[in-house]
Amino acid sequence: MVAENSTPHLHSAVEPKQTFRRALDMSSRAAMPSLFIMFSAILLSAPFGIPGQAQLQFGIAMCTVWFWAHSRPRSMPALAVFLCGLVVEIFSFGPPGTVLLSLLVIYGVAHHWRYGLSRLGFLMGWLIFSIFAVIASFFQWALVCLHAVALLSPAPGLFQAALTIGIYPSLTALFVWGRRTFANPDQA
């Protein structure tokens, strides 16, 4: 694991007593990223009339999985990614399975390369994420075309990719803060 257990004072031999309340606190902090994806997917499916709501669902899920899979994989296991993907699938009306598959693939990449990504720095990580966001949107567009048996305009897919890439820095800032504070199981 890369970023977790990085604070030295938490490695002391004196551990807090493991009570039920502490276990609950730890698990809720660990589940924070998954709950964030599910909550935003459900919230963004409400009819607020905000432009790009459906694209935001996809973008938030992609950014969250990418960040937590490489920075604290214990807070984002594969099964949680699958469950989050299913929730996003249920609360969106795109071609079935594409968001789920994209999330799992991006999880696999981030989890597999987590040591390399932690050395590369933010900008390089963002660039690699951008490439995968474009590939995922292209895959979604290809499936929609296949389903419609017609060549549709790729503009909505490009907009979705651009939105996903665009919200990544601000979400990363939120997650970096959360990793230290409210989503850090070691601080329970």
Partner: peptide
């Protein structure tokens, strides 16, 4: 093995979406 299994399930969902939308 869990990630490949989950990816296979996701591919299954994609195929289900194409065949039985």
């Amino acid at each position: 093995a869990i990630l490949p299994i989950l990816i296979l399930l996701a591919v299954g969902l994609v195929l289900l979406g194409l065949v039985r939308r």
